[in-house]
Amino acid sequence: MADKEKEKPPSFAAMLAQVRPRTDVEAAETLRKVIEAVKATGKVGSITIRLDVKPADGLMDAVVVYDRITQKVPEKTREGSMAFITRDGDLSRTDPGAMPLWEEEVRDAGMDFDRQSGEIKEAPEA
C-alpha cells in the first residue's frame, strides 16, 4: 500500500506552491477581485491560470516553469446620454433648434427677453 501512495502525484496546489510560491497567492487575490466585480455587476467574470513549461537549457532532468494569470473582470453597464449636434459640430444637451423653456436656457442661449412677460425680444440667428 505504501508503494501505491508514492505513485500518486502530489496535489496540484502543493506542487504549484513549491515551484511558483507567489502564484497561488496572486491567483487568490485576482479571484477575489473578480468575485467582487461579479457581485457588483451581476455579470460573468473569469480567471485563467496558465503554466508554460520549457526545457531548461543544457539540463536533461530540469524544466523552467512560467506562470501567467489573466482575468476578465465584468464592468457595470454604462448608460448613454442623449446629445444634439450643434451647427458647429459640437455636442449639446439641449436641442439647438428648439426654443428654450427655462429662464436659464434663454440666458445661456444669448437671447434678450422681458423678465415680466417672458417674451423673447430678440433671438440669436438660428
Rank of each mutant, 00 (worst) to 15 (best):
K8G: 09
K8D: 11
K8E: 15
P9S: 11
F12I: 15
A13V: 15
A14H: 10
R22W: 06
R22L: 08
D24Q: 11
V25L: 08
V25Q: 09
A28H: 03
A28F: 00
E29A: 13
L31W: 04
I35R: 12
I35G: 08
I35A: 14
A37P: 09
V38W: 00
V38G: 00
A40P: 03
T41E: 10
I47R: 02
I47E: 04
I49C: 10
L51F: 00
P55W: 00
L59G: 00
M60H: 05
V64H: 06
Y66C: 00
D67G: 07
T70D: 14
T70S: 15
K72G: 15
K72C: 11
V73T: 06
V73E: 03
P74K: 09
E75T: 13
T77R: 11
S81Q: 14
A83P: 05
I85P: 00
T86A: 01
R87S: 14
R87Q: 15
L91A: 12
P96N: 14
A98W: 08
M99L: 12
L101Q: 08
E104I: 08
A109E: 12
D112K: 10
F113D: 01
D114S: 09
D114A: 11
Q116T: 13
G118Y: 10
G118M: 10
E119T: 12
E119P: 01
E119W: 09
E119L: 11
E122V: 01
A123H: 05
